[in-house]
Design a protein around this nucleic acid. Structure first.
Lengths: 129, 129
DNA sequence: CTTAAATCTACACTTGACGTCAAGTTAACT
DNA sequence: AGTTAACTTGACGTCAAGTGTAGATTTAAG
Protein backbone atom coordinates (compact mmCIF):
# COMPACT_ATOMS: atom_id res chain seq x y z
CA UNK A 1 0.00 0.00 0.00
CA UNK A 2 1.00 3.58 -0.53
CA UNK A 3 2.70 5.44 2.27
CA UNK A 4 0.37 7.55 4.32
CA UNK A 5 1.33 10.58 6.35
CA UNK A 6 -0.07 12.01 9.53
CA UNK A 7 -1.53 15.42 9.93
CA UNK A 8 1.76 16.95 11.03
CA UNK A 9 3.55 16.14 7.83
CA UNK A 10 0.61 17.09 5.70
CA UNK A 11 0.24 20.42 7.43
CA UNK A 12 3.92 21.15 7.07
CA UNK A 13 4.04 20.23 3.41
CA UNK A 14 0.87 22.16 2.62
CA UNK A 15 1.89 25.15 4.66
CA UNK A 16 -1.26 25.25 6.76
CA UNK A 17 -1.73 24.50 10.44
CA UNK A 18 -3.17 21.21 11.60
CA UNK A 19 -6.00 23.20 13.13
CA UNK A 20 -6.83 24.51 9.70
CA UNK A 21 -6.91 20.97 8.36
CA UNK A 22 -9.31 19.95 11.11
CA UNK A 23 -11.39 22.98 10.25
CA UNK A 24 -11.48 22.12 6.55
CA UNK A 25 -12.48 18.60 7.43
CA UNK A 26 -15.45 19.90 9.40
CA UNK A 27 -16.47 21.93 6.36
CA UNK A 28 -16.26 18.85 4.17
CA UNK A 29 -13.30 20.05 2.15
CA UNK A 30 -11.12 17.03 2.67
CA UNK A 31 -11.20 13.72 4.46
CA UNK A 32 -8.34 11.57 5.71
CA UNK A 33 -7.69 8.46 3.65
CA UNK A 34 -7.83 6.41 6.80
CA UNK A 35 -8.75 6.67 10.41
CA UNK A 36 -7.63 3.66 12.34
CA UNK A 37 -8.58 2.53 15.82
CA UNK A 38 -7.50 5.36 18.05
CA UNK A 39 -8.55 8.08 15.66
CA UNK A 40 -5.31 9.36 14.18
CA UNK A 41 -5.81 10.76 10.71
CA UNK A 42 -3.72 9.38 7.86
CA UNK A 43 -3.51 11.13 4.53
CA UNK A 44 -2.30 10.29 1.05
CA UNK A 45 -0.75 12.54 -1.58
CA UNK A 46 -4.18 13.45 -2.89
CA UNK A 47 -4.84 15.31 0.31
CA UNK A 48 -1.86 17.52 -0.40
CA UNK A 49 -3.11 18.23 -3.89
CA UNK A 50 -6.49 19.06 -2.49
CA UNK A 51 -5.02 21.53 -0.05
CA UNK A 52 -3.08 23.16 -2.84
CA UNK A 53 -6.21 23.41 -4.95
CA UNK A 54 -8.09 24.90 -2.03
CA UNK A 55 -5.39 27.51 -1.59
CA UNK A 56 -5.52 28.35 -5.28
CA UNK A 57 -9.28 28.74 -5.25
CA UNK A 58 -9.04 30.88 -2.14
CA UNK A 59 -6.60 33.19 -3.87
CA UNK A 60 -9.22 33.63 -6.56
CA UNK A 61 -11.62 34.88 -3.96
CA UNK A 62 -13.85 31.86 -3.43
CA UNK A 63 -15.16 31.23 0.04
CA UNK A 64 -14.57 27.88 1.68
CA UNK A 65 -18.23 27.04 1.25
CA UNK A 66 -18.04 27.76 -2.45
CA UNK A 67 -14.90 25.69 -2.69
CA UNK A 68 -16.62 22.83 -0.94
CA UNK A 69 -19.28 22.86 -3.64
CA UNK A 70 -16.86 22.33 -6.50
CA UNK A 71 -13.66 20.81 -5.18
CA UNK A 72 -14.81 17.30 -5.96
CA UNK A 73 -14.96 18.24 -9.60
CA UNK A 74 -11.21 18.32 -9.57
CA UNK A 75 -10.71 15.05 -7.77
CA UNK A 76 -13.67 12.77 -8.15
CA UNK A 77 -14.78 11.05 -11.27
CA UNK A 78 -17.34 13.45 -12.65
CA UNK A 79 -19.74 10.67 -13.53
CA UNK A 80 -20.36 10.16 -9.86
CA UNK A 81 -21.30 13.72 -9.07
CA UNK A 82 -24.81 14.48 -7.94
CA UNK A 83 -26.78 17.49 -9.04
CA UNK A 84 -24.90 18.18 -12.21
CA UNK A 85 -27.08 21.09 -13.22
CA UNK A 86 -26.46 22.69 -9.87
CA UNK A 87 -22.75 22.28 -10.28
CA UNK A 88 -22.96 23.63 -13.80
CA UNK A 89 -24.75 26.69 -12.51
CA UNK A 90 -22.11 27.28 -9.90
CA UNK A 91 -19.36 26.92 -12.47
CA UNK A 92 -21.03 29.38 -14.82
CA UNK A 93 -21.33 31.88 -12.01
CA UNK A 94 -17.69 31.44 -11.20
CA UNK A 95 -16.76 31.89 -14.83
CA UNK A 96 -18.68 35.15 -15.04
CA UNK A 97 -16.99 36.37 -11.89
CA UNK A 98 -13.61 35.34 -13.18
CA UNK A 99 -14.20 37.29 -16.37
CA UNK A 100 -15.21 40.40 -14.50
CA UNK A 101 -12.24 39.99 -12.21
CA UNK A 102 -9.93 39.73 -15.17
CA UNK A 103 -11.15 42.98 -16.63
CA UNK A 104 -10.79 44.77 -13.33
CA UNK A 105 -7.41 43.29 -12.68
CA UNK A 106 -6.12 44.46 -16.03
CA UNK A 107 -7.35 47.98 -15.41
CA UNK A 108 -5.77 47.88 -11.96
CA UNK A 109 -2.49 46.82 -13.50
CA UNK A 110 -2.55 49.74 -15.90
CA UNK A 111 -3.24 52.11 -13.01
CA UNK A 112 -0.43 50.63 -11.01
CA UNK A 113 2.00 50.93 -13.86
CA UNK A 114 1.06 54.56 -14.40
CA UNK A 115 1.48 55.28 -10.70
CA UNK A 116 4.83 53.56 -10.59
CA UNK A 117 6.04 55.61 -13.49
CA UNK A 118 4.84 58.77 -11.86
CA UNK A 119 6.57 57.87 -8.60
CA UNK A 120 9.79 57.08 -10.38
CA UNK A 121 9.67 60.41 -12.13
CA UNK A 122 9.02 62.26 -8.88
CA UNK A 123 11.82 60.47 -7.11
CA UNK A 124 14.29 61.21 -9.89
CA UNK A 125 13.18 64.81 -9.90
CA UNK A 126 13.62 65.13 -6.16
CA UNK A 127 17.08 63.59 -6.34
CA UNK A 128 18.51 66.13 -8.73
CA UNK A 129 16.37 69.05 -7.66
CA UNK B 1 -18.84 76.81 -2.76
CA UNK B 2 -19.49 73.35 -4.04
CA UNK B 3 -22.52 71.47 -2.85
CA UNK B 4 -21.79 69.07 -0.04
CA UNK B 5 -23.83 66.04 0.86
CA UNK B 6 -24.48 64.31 4.14
CA UNK B 7 -23.63 60.79 5.00
CA UNK B 8 -27.05 59.50 3.97
CA UNK B 9 -26.73 60.61 0.39
CA UNK B 10 -23.13 59.51 0.16
CA UNK B 11 -23.92 56.09 1.55
CA UNK B 12 -26.83 55.68 -0.84
CA UNK B 13 -24.87 56.79 -3.89
CA UNK B 14 -21.87 54.66 -2.98
CA UNK B 15 -23.94 51.65 -2.06
CA UNK B 16 -22.48 51.22 1.39
CA UNK B 17 -24.04 51.76 4.80
CA UNK B 18 -23.32 54.82 6.88
CA UNK B 19 -21.83 52.56 9.53
CA UNK B 20 -19.38 51.35 6.93
CA UNK B 21 -18.44 54.94 6.18
CA UNK B 22 -17.90 55.58 9.89
CA UNK B 23 -15.77 52.48 10.01
CA UNK B 24 -13.69 53.53 7.03
CA UNK B 25 -13.19 56.90 8.63
CA UNK B 26 -11.81 55.29 11.77
CA UNK B 27 -9.38 53.33 9.61
CA UNK B 28 -8.28 56.53 7.92
CA UNK B 29 -9.70 55.65 4.52
CA UNK B 30 -11.69 58.80 4.04
CA UNK B 31 -12.49 61.99 5.87
CA UNK B 32 -15.48 64.29 5.54
CA UNK B 33 -14.74 67.55 3.77
CA UNK B 34 -16.29 69.36 6.65
CA UNK B 35 -17.53 68.81 10.14
CA UNK B 36 -19.48 71.77 11.43
CA UNK B 37 -20.47 72.62 14.97
CA UNK B 38 -22.75 69.78 15.94
CA UNK B 39 -20.72 67.08 14.28
CA UNK B 40 -22.62 66.25 11.12
CA UNK B 41 -20.31 65.02 8.39
CA UNK B 42 -20.42 66.72 5.00
CA UNK B 43 -18.83 65.19 1.96
CA UNK B 44 -17.88 66.30 -1.53
CA UNK B 45 -17.82 64.32 -4.76
CA UNK B 46 -14.29 63.18 -4.10
CA UNK B 47 -15.57 61.12 -1.22
CA UNK B 48 -17.77 59.21 -3.61
CA UNK B 49 -14.87 58.55 -5.94
CA UNK B 50 -12.82 57.40 -2.99
CA UNK B 51 -15.50 54.94 -1.94
CA UNK B 52 -15.69 53.60 -5.47
CA UNK B 53 -11.93 53.18 -5.56
CA UNK B 54 -12.00 51.43 -2.21
CA UNK B 55 -14.63 49.01 -3.51
CA UNK B 56 -12.53 48.31 -6.60
CA UNK B 57 -9.43 47.62 -4.55
CA UNK B 58 -11.42 45.38 -2.23
CA UNK B 59 -12.59 43.32 -5.19
CA UNK B 60 -8.96 42.83 -6.06
CA UNK B 61 -8.43 41.27 -2.67
CA UNK B 62 -6.72 44.07 -0.79
CA UNK B 63 -7.53 44.44 2.89
CA UNK B 64 -8.74 47.76 4.19
CA UNK B 65 -5.38 48.34 5.84
CA UNK B 66 -3.58 47.79 2.58
CA UNK B 67 -5.99 50.10 0.84
CA UNK B 68 -5.35 52.76 3.44
CA UNK B 69 -1.67 52.64 2.54
CA UNK B 70 -2.19 53.47 -1.12
CA UNK B 71 -5.52 55.20 -1.54
CA UNK B 72 -3.98 58.65 -1.31
CA UNK B 73 -1.93 57.91 -4.37
CA UNK B 74 -5.12 58.12 -6.35
CA UNK B 75 -6.39 61.31 -4.81
CA UNK B 76 -3.64 63.44 -3.43
CA UNK B 77 -1.18 65.38 -5.45
CA UNK B 78 1.75 63.02 -5.62
CA UNK B 79 4.25 65.77 -5.01
CA UNK B 80 2.95 66.02 -1.50
CA UNK B 81 3.41 62.39 -0.63
CA UNK B 82 6.01 61.42 1.93
CA UNK B 83 8.19 58.40 1.63
CA UNK B 84 7.97 57.96 -2.09
CA UNK B 85 10.30 54.99 -2.16
CA UNK B 86 8.11 53.26 0.36
CA UNK B 87 5.05 53.89 -1.75
CA UNK B 88 6.89 52.70 -4.81
CA UNK B 89 7.77 49.50 -3.02
CA UNK B 90 4.16 48.91 -2.08
CA UNK B 91 3.07 49.54 -5.64
CA UNK B 92 5.63 47.15 -7.04
CA UNK B 93 4.46 44.52 -4.59
CA UNK B 94 0.88 45.03 -5.69
CA UNK B 95 1.90 44.82 -9.31
CA UNK B 96 3.66 41.53 -8.74
CA UNK B 97 0.61 40.19 -6.95
CA UNK B 98 -1.65 41.41 -9.71
CA UNK B 99 0.48 39.63 -12.29
CA UNK B 100 0.45 36.40 -10.35
CA UNK B 101 -3.27 36.73 -9.88
CA UNK B 102 -3.77 37.25 -13.59
CA UNK B 103 -1.90 34.07 -14.43
CA UNK B 104 -3.83 32.09 -11.89
CA UNK B 105 -7.10 33.56 -12.96
CA UNK B 106 -6.49 32.66 -16.57
CA UNK B 107 -5.63 29.09 -15.64
CA UNK B 108 -8.72 28.96 -13.46
CA UNK B 109 -10.82 30.15 -16.38
CA UNK B 110 -9.49 27.40 -18.59
CA UNK B 111 -10.23 24.84 -15.89
CA UNK B 112 -13.71 26.19 -15.49
CA UNK B 113 -14.40 26.07 -19.18
CA UNK B 114 -13.19 22.50 -19.38
CA UNK B 115 -15.31 21.52 -16.41
CA UNK B 116 -18.36 23.22 -17.85
CA UNK B 117 -17.95 21.36 -21.09
CA UNK B 118 -17.55 18.10 -19.28
CA UNK B 119 -20.65 18.78 -17.21
CA UNK B 120 -22.67 19.66 -20.26
CA UNK B 121 -21.61 16.48 -21.91
CA UNK B 122 -22.49 14.41 -18.87
CA UNK B 123 -25.88 16.05 -18.59
CA UNK B 124 -26.68 15.51 -22.24
CA UNK B 125 -25.57 11.91 -21.94
CA UNK B 126 -27.71 11.33 -18.87
CA UNK B 127 -30.75 12.85 -20.59
CA UNK B 128 -30.72 10.50 -23.54
CA UNK B 129 -28.69 7.77 -21.89
C1' DC C 1 9.06 0.12 29.56
C1' DT C 2 9.10 4.56 30.26
C1' DT C 3 9.06 8.94 28.33
C1' DA C 4 8.71 12.46 24.82
C1' DA C 5 6.44 13.85 20.72
C1' DA C 6 2.31 13.73 18.12
C1' DT C 7 -2.39 13.62 17.97
C1' DC C 8 -7.24 13.68 19.63
C1' DT C 9 -11.72 16.39 21.07
C1' DA C 10 -13.93 20.34 22.74
C1' DC C 11 -14.48 24.83 23.76
C1' DA C 12 -13.15 29.54 23.72
C1' DC C 13 -10.93 33.32 21.62
C1' DT C 14 -9.42 36.44 17.70
C1' DT C 15 -9.59 39.42 13.56
C1' DG C 16 -11.64 41.84 9.75
C1' DA C 17 -15.46 43.88 8.11
C1' DC C 18 -19.10 45.12 9.01
C1' DG C 19 -24.61 45.20 11.10
C1' DT C 20 -28.02 46.15 14.94
C1' DC C 21 -29.93 48.61 18.45
C1' DA C 22 -30.67 52.37 21.54
C1' DA C 23 -30.48 56.88 23.38
C1' DG C 24 -29.59 61.30 22.46
C1' DT C 25 -28.89 65.56 19.14
C1' DT C 26 -29.71 68.30 15.18
C1' DA C 27 -31.80 69.79 11.01
C1' DA C 28 -35.78 70.22 7.98
C1' DC C 29 -40.60 70.71 7.19
C1' DT C 30 -45.20 72.50 8.16
C1' DA D 1 -43.15 75.55 17.77
C1' DG D 2 -43.65 70.87 17.14
C1' DT D 3 -42.99 66.82 14.67
C1' DT D 4 -40.29 64.01 11.79
C1' DA D 5 -36.27 62.65 9.48
C1' DA D 6 -31.35 62.44 9.51
C1' DC D 7 -27.46 62.19 12.15
C1' DT D 8 -24.43 61.15 16.30
C1' DT D 9 -21.84 57.78 19.43
C1' DG D 10 -21.36 53.56 21.97
C1' DA D 11 -22.04 48.98 23.03
C1' DC D 12 -22.86 44.78 21.46
C1' DG D 13 -23.75 40.99 17.76
C1' DT D 14 -22.40 38.34 13.65
C1' DC D 15 -20.08 35.75 10.12
C1' DA D 16 -16.03 33.73 7.99
C1' DA D 17 -11.84 31.83 8.66
C1' DG D 18 -9.29 30.56 11.37
C1' DT D 19 -6.01 30.21 16.19
C1' DG D 20 -5.15 28.87 21.15
C1' DT D 21 -5.42 26.04 24.88
C1' DA D 22 -6.42 22.12 27.98
C1' DG D 23 -6.63 17.57 29.18
C1' DA D 24 -6.61 13.02 27.56
C1' DT D 25 -4.71 9.53 24.62
C1' DT D 26 -1.47 7.31 21.55
C1' DT D 27 2.47 6.36 19.04
C1' DA D 28 7.38 6.41 18.47
C1' DA D 29 12.00 6.54 20.41
C1' DG D 30 15.52 5.51 23.62
Amino acid sequence: MLPLMQIGELSERAGVSHRTIHYYERLGLLQPAEREGAGYRYYDEMALKRLEKIAALKRLGLSLDEIAMVIDLYFKDATGIEGKEKVLEILRGQLARADAQLVELQAFKRDLEANIERMQYLIAEARQG
